[in-house]
Design a protein around this nucleic acid. Structure first.
Lengths: 345, 345
DNA sequence: GCCTTTAGCGCAATCGTTTTCGTAAAAAAA
DNA sequence: TTTTTTTACGAAAACGATTGCGCTAAAGGC
């Protein structure tokens, strides 16, 4: 099967003009008379002529498309961010090609190379949990491919970044638990190679210290796969529950970890917040109908997507090399619900 | 900024060969001597030569990419389906370009035209709730663009389809509610222009009739935007609750409607299933941690995505026009949880 | 030793578009 | 009328890759 569209050549032949004349007429060149222009435009709209974007890409060296690499779209934070990316891209007439790394370093590398060879004009990335080394991105960046980072970022590439205020979000979540009277607050988080992990852990630690508590390393559990592997999270949770002075609250650092932890606790018939309170980073639109309704640190995902896309397109369309880069830090919001509210003693 | 990659020309120049020789060598043509081939291959891999896909697309008239239009990726059913699409596409070396209609007819039209002009080799579509007329797709299909439908389908286009067994899924959900002793079972669903709406409603009606009950039209509420507009769902729900013989159970027909209804009922402090039971179509990975855990009709979203992609690629790669089409109907699964379990009287 | 075959490579067209340059005819200036 | 300037258009190269065809030389057949 073949999909045939009308080309500039067809128009030229039909109107007895040359290809170049038609092209210029379509672009409204002053070299072409009003009559010819009118004729061409009429014919073009009659037969719904649309320039072949592939040919245009080849000619202009730009594809008017941007690539996106996230760990997983099956996650409200990223799907919301992608909505933001798409809205800005559409408005500026760019296409968006979305790929998923599934938290795998290998797939991140493969995707980035594939996208760059597909001649996207730029790349928006949130790093995978497995990624420790960003040489694959540095290579592309040095070759001149505009790259913008959001959420899980790295300073190894000199470029724009958009992140949530992870430190503050974690600080406030932890402080909230402290204010509710919880003292043995555990932290389940992802790989330490991720910027978000480090920043959120700092907020967590600082809140404890500011309350005069010493962070207890036994209360901190890393899940290298960021919750993608349930068994890993289960293990971390079990280790916490088996501690002598078992935690009375848990602060989970990512979307998947929050829902998985909640699910596991319920499977174990552990009451929340009665036996253990829970606060988590999550953008789930259903956090309010969880059992119990989950206290959440919500990131401005849509806005993050919009901002990073604006910045990337700036980069792409800039005539001269950009040397000064922005790091946008957007505020999170703490939505207090039942899962962290101290029941009357 | 410009991203420069190595081309066949560069190789030719460096090795003092012609462009065509290099191209043939890279393709392992028998016309080229082993020595030359080895030389070219060595140089190519040393400098990481990758054929420019844009140029290849232009030459071959194929882009090795497929377009996807769904209403919203911020929804576990579709994000899982996309995972299925991507996995098959990747394996067959196709790219996937995802777009969202946001349940809007205009955006569906715009997306389909945009994708076709971006020369995707084929299109996978689940129709928007607003779509009543599929002329835009028929037009593209008649021009020879392979199109495959899943989930929300239409028979106006002669092509492959993959759907869940909506009738049976709805029938079983309703029968389950009946078996639990509920008798006044309401149905909140989307626009009647959607195939899934019609099929699910048929299952619902038939289950009632098989139980000797007459479907009551006052118990059936349509939400034209499929839950995208919360106010619409709220209104439908309010109307149900204000009925004299208020329903004792609700069967919601889609992901967004299910979560929204649950959320609204909880906001109104209506006990589930005590005052009203709830069963809904949903692929939410968090249905088990909802309050209450939500009895769900789960669709095999991943498999649906995989199957429809296989079929589309068959269509794309078929040498001769395809005249016989498949309609795959995949089984749903009823996951019974708390929201529909009759409390002891 | 002459003719045919074939291995090995280059030329040039092609995909659809953009863009520079050239050029004819018409209009303006001389 | 002659020269110059405009106006309006066409020819052709380019983007990077593919491919049918033609060409040259060496190898083989007689």
């Amino acid at each position: 099967m073949k999909f045939e569209a009308i080309t500039i050549k067809d128009i030229a032949k039909a109107l007895n003009l040359s290809v170049s004349t038609v092209s210029k007429a379509l672009h409204g060149s002053h070299e072409i008379s009003k009559e010819t222009k009118a004729q061409v435009l009429a014919y073009a709209s009659k037969y719904k002529y649309k320039p072949n974007p592939i040919a245009q890409s080849l000619k202009k060296g730009r594809s008017k498309s941007i690539g996106v690499i996230v760990c997983n779209i099956d996650n409200n934070f990223f799907s919301q961010a992608i909505n933001g990316i798409e809205s800005v891209a559409r408005q500026k007439d760019y296409n968006v090609i979305i790929t998923q790394s599934q938290e795998s370093y290998d797939r991140e590398v493969a995707n980035s190379e594939h996208l760059s060879s597909r001649s996207v004009d730029g790349l928006i990335i949130s790093l995978s949990a497995e990624t420790r080394n960003v040489d694959h991105l540095v290579r592309l960046h040095e070759k001149g491919l505009p790259i913008a980072l959001f959420d899980r970022v790295t300073d190894a590439i000199a470029t724009h970044q958009v992140i949530a205020d992870n430190y503050k979000g974690a600080y406030e979540a932890t402080r909230h638990l402290l204010q509710q009277g919880f003292r043995r607050i555990a932290h389940i988080t992802s790989s330490l190679s991720l910027s978000i992990t480090v920043e959120r852990m700092q907020g967590y630690r600082q809140a404890l210290e500011d309350a005069g508590l010493q962070p207890d390393e036994r209360y901190i559990k890393l899940c290298a796969h960021g919750g993608m592997i349930q068994e890993e999270t289960r293990l971390a949770l079990m280790q916490l529950l088996e501690l002598e002075d078992r935690p009375d609250a848990i602060f989970t650092a990512s979307d998947r970890l929050s829902t998985t932890t909640l699910s596991l606790l319920r499977q174990m018939y552990i009451e929340i917040p009665g036996q253990i309170a829970l606060v988590g980073f999550t953008n789930s639109i259903s956090a309010d109908i969880f059992n119990p309704a989950l206290t959440a640190v919500v990131q401005p995902a849509l806005e993050m997507g919009q901002q990073i896309t604006e910045l990337l397109i700036q980069l792409i369309e800039s005539k001269r090399p950009v040397t000064s880069f922005q790091k946008l830090v957007l505020a999170t919001e703490l939505k207090i619900r039942d899962s962290s509210t101290r029941p009357p003693a």
